[in-house]
Write a protein that binds this DNA or RNA. Structure first.
Length: 668
DNA sequence: GCAAGGTC
């Protein structure tokens, strides 16, 4: 009998390699240290079936990307020479970063004497590229390795064992598409950042030195710039808003001690004379007639399984912490083994997952234990299935019970939210009975809406939501005629939207493909640190000392110009629940100057809008699906961005003018 | 001193 083959398995992070080792070995593995404190080597035997059979396995991991792309040294010494545009075609090298060398050595050493490398990185695009990096290092240790890849989308035991026995090949197209993205982000980001910093510094003042005395870096990146653009765009929409008066008719009727409000079907009109005429006709008619009574069951849907973006938005709304703080707390909870991986886009649970077992772990809690016990006793419902699946991680959920005393304040709040959200997902929708009553009053139609909540269900464990406007209506009968208690002509003004809050900003980034679940909070942090934006408590009227001068010709009350944001009739939904800790984003004068300057240069595609990043995303997809070659994308995108760069250089005076106007407050 | 993406 031949000796067992040796197989080296490498995952993207230690938590996955440990979980896989536990499943494949049935819990019988040995743990060895590596040169990295977070990464362990797990050794065990496993029968992969044909052709490898029973094998000696070393299971280890990397810690995200192993390598970084770097410019040659001569491009790192100075920001002027060679000039920034040289970075568009300067030579680059892929290097293992110094702090990753122990990880690389661990892989090389264990590759020696191994028959095969089995890659277990996350099954998303970046994971595929990390798998490619692992392969490169392993082959340095042993050029004859057979290379296979596990395809898995969760770490359930049966799923992992199936993945181990049905390996596939690395997807070269995905690997390549990420390599292209990395190189483009590097060349473009560095070239623009150096050029911006070099050319604005001579203007002096805050463009040269930071308030803390450090030298100013004016950075540019394809994610941070559109993020700034969202903030500036909303800022001008608010500043340039011109309120418009409107008029409406409100009918109320008192019956059975309930004041019923009937809302006008036309909602409101912007012409007073017309509303007055319609209102007078109602008064003249004296009586109204019930033309529709409809009762029907209704429900308020339970929330979707939790993604990172949702966690971040809700943290700001309900937990009084920003996305950065929420992710830090989630990271701790994950490290301690209380919650699943906190960076995920998936809002559907794999049907094979044993959710009941996870619910059962929560029955001991004195806040939601009874609710969980109810689910265990039969009220359990399979969660809704969202439309997103990153094929790498399940939705965020509690994996072990944690008593509140064991956590710091922020971690406690995040754990509570994640757990309540999970239990809500495993519960039933709230059920109610809706009543709609329409009346005709002269020629106008008005309607009243009522809801009686019959079963709160998930709302009992999820205090972050309520069923608002759940009012009971008194009895109305079809064709009945009555004299309304009161009819009023009301007057109002459209109001401006508020400044962007963090949930708004994250929602915009998410919808426009700016950043990933793991990086959105970082981009927001970056534009704060660069002093392009600052935050303040929502509704705190005081202006920060960075507030820019109002846009020329758009000063409130001075002219009818609505500005580029449009009129936003009725105001924007900010969704900022109870105020409290919600912060709003205001651009600094520098942030406004950058966006204003670039927008006025006349670029074909605006740099402060998300289009360019979206285009990159689409081209990466083309590469993955075989419609576009990687080297073609790289070459053409570089050409395109070089043109943008050349135009920016040519039009530098436009940007400088914006900086003088907004930042230095002089000149036109 | 500079990007965006992984992860601790």
């Amino acid at each position: 009998m031949p000796p067992p083959k040796k197989i080296l398995c490498v995952a993207e992070k230690n938590s996955i390699s440990k979980a896989v080792a536990e499943h494949l070995s049935g819990g019988h593995f040995q743990t060895g240290n590596t040169g990295n404190q977070y990464i362990k080597n797990y050794t065990f035997t496993f029968d992969f079936g044909p052709p490898w059979g029973n094998c000696q396995v070393v299971m280890t991991s990397v810690s995200g990307h192993l390598t970084a792309v770097k410019f040659d040294d001569e491009y790192e010494r100075s920001w002027d020479n060679p000039p920034p545009e040289a970075l568009f075609d300067a030579p680059v090298q892929v290097k293992v970063e110094d702090d990753k060398l122990p990880i690389s050595n661990n892989i090389k050493n264990n590759a020696r004497g191994a028959h095969a490398l089995f890659i277990w990185t996350d099954c998303d695009r970046e994971g595929e590229h990390i798998g490619g990096e692992v392969r490169t290092e392993a082959l340095k240790g042993n050029p004859t390795l057979e290379i296979r890849r596990a395809r898995f989308s969760n770490i359930e035991r049966a799923h992992i064992i199936h993945a181990a026995k049905h390996p596939v090949n690395l997807d070269e197209r995905q690997v390549l598409s990420v390599a292209v993205r990395i190189e483009l982000d590097l060349r473009i980001g560095y070239a623009f950042t150096r050029h911006l910093t070099n050319s604005l510094r001579p203007l002096g003042g805050p463009l040269s030195v930071r308030p803390d005395g450090g030298r100013r870096v004016i950075s540019f990146g394809l994610c941070q710039f559109p993020t700034l653009g969202f903030v500036v765009d909303r800022y001008f929409r608010v500043k340039n808003f011109v309120p418009e008066p409107f008029w409406s008719i409100k009918v109320t009727h008192r019956r059975d001690d309930i004041n019923v409000v009937f809302n006008w079907k036309r909602v409101r009109l912007f012409d007073r004379a017309v509303v007055v005429i319609l209102f007078e006709r109602c008064i003249a008619a004296k009586t109204a007639k019930v033309i529709k009574v409809q009762e029907k069951p209704t429900s308020k849907w339970k929330p979707l399984p939790l993604t990172t973006v949702e966690l971040q938005k809700n943290a700001s709304r309900f937990l009084r912490m920003n996305s950065h703080e929420a992710m830090a707390a989630a990271e701790v909870l994950y490290q301690k083994g209380f919650i699943s991986y906190p960076r995920t886009e998936t809002d559907r649970f794999d049907p094979g997952m044993n959710l009941r077992a996870l619910v059962e772990k929560q029955t001991q809690d004195n806040r939601w234990g009874t609710f969980a016990q109810n689910l265990v006793n039969g009220a359990f419902k399979q969660p809704r299935q969202g439309r997103h699946d990153d094929k790498a991680h399940p939705p965020i959920h509690p994996v072990a019970y944690c008593a509140p005393a064991n956590l710091r304040d922020k971690e406690k709040r995040v754990y509570e939210f994640i757990t309540r959200r999970f239990l809500a997902c495993c519960s039933d929708d709230a059920k109610g009975q809706a009543t709609d009553v329409d009346i005709q009053y002269a020629d106008e139609v008005f309607s009243a809406h009522g809801v009686v909540v019959l079963a709160r269900n998930y709302l009992d464990v999820y205090p972050y939501e309520n069923w608002t406007n759940s009012v009971t209506l008194p009895k109305f009968t079809l064709d009945e005629v009555f004299e309304p208690t009161e009819a009023m002509l009301t007057e109002g003004k459209t109001s401006a939207s508020s400044y962007l809050t963090e949930p708004d900003l994250i929602a915009l980034m998410d919808a426009n493909g700016i950043g990933t679940d793991a990086t959105m909070a970082e981009h927001i942090n970056t534009i704060k640190q660069r002093e392009y934006v600052y935050t303040r408590p929502k509704g705190g009227g005081g202006r920060g000392n960075h507030a820019p001068a109002p846009a020329r010709g758009a000063r409130e009350g001075r002219g009818a110009r609505a500005g580029r944001g449009g009129q936003g009739r009725g105001g924007g939904a900010t969704g900022a629940g109870g105020g409290g800790g919600v912060e709003e984003f205001i651009p600094s004068t520098l942030g406004v100057a950058l966006v204003d300057g670039y927008d006025k240069m006349g670029h074909e595609i605006s740099l402060s809008k998300p289009f360019l990043r979206k285009e990159m995303e689409l081209k990466m997809k083309d590469i993955c699906e075989g419609r576009l070659a990687g080297d073609v994308m790289l070459r053409e995108s570089l050409k395109q961005y070089k043109r943008v760069f050349d135009l920016s250089k040519e039009q530098l005076n436009v940007l400088k003018a914006s900086c003088r106007r907004y930042v230095l407050n002089n000149g036109a």
